[in-house]
Amino acid sequence: MRLGNSTTCYGPVAILFHWLTALGVIGLFGLGLWMVELTYYDNWYNEAPAIHRSVGILLFALVALRLLWRLINPHPEPLGQPLEKRLAIGMHWLLYLFLFAVLISGYFISSAKGRPVGVFDWFSVPATLHDLPNQEDIAGVIHLWLAWGLIILSSGHTLAALKHHLIDRDASLRRILRFTNDK
């Protein structure tokens, strides 16, 4: 079985990366908005942020691997009008940019005082940049707005895929939904 992409289709690895990222982003966004409203005596008060941090670090690793995979693989050509193709390429890179930025800004909140960020009970990531003035507050504001930005971009990305599927009736959506060995 072919694992990589061709110039027309996504391989199973890219498809898995895509949907794991989507699941991670939506899950972390919902969890993040929910956990900051929890009260002190809520059962999830400590656990929800711990899961948010852990999944965030894992998602960072996943997106980094995904980017690497993309760079060493052929990439399916975008479909549609020339302008749409340029927009699609721009959107994909913008999504990568926001993904990295939102994940890194989250890490800068938790590690702002030099504390490592734990990933479940498995391992922890040491702090790098820390003790900058008001680091946790500034990183917090940036994290929230970037998260909203990422969700808005992802919604645009989804609507564009639906437009390709329903209006243009091309393979854009189909080729990320299932792996086909044929061209």
């Binding site: 942020p49 909140i109 590690s111 702002a112 005082k113 504390r115 008001n134 946790e136 507050d137």
Partner: peptide, 13 residues
Amino acid sequence: MASIDSNHAERDK
């Protein structure tokens, strides 16, 4: 008041 410091970034935030 922003200079509050309890040696824990998330709590201080």
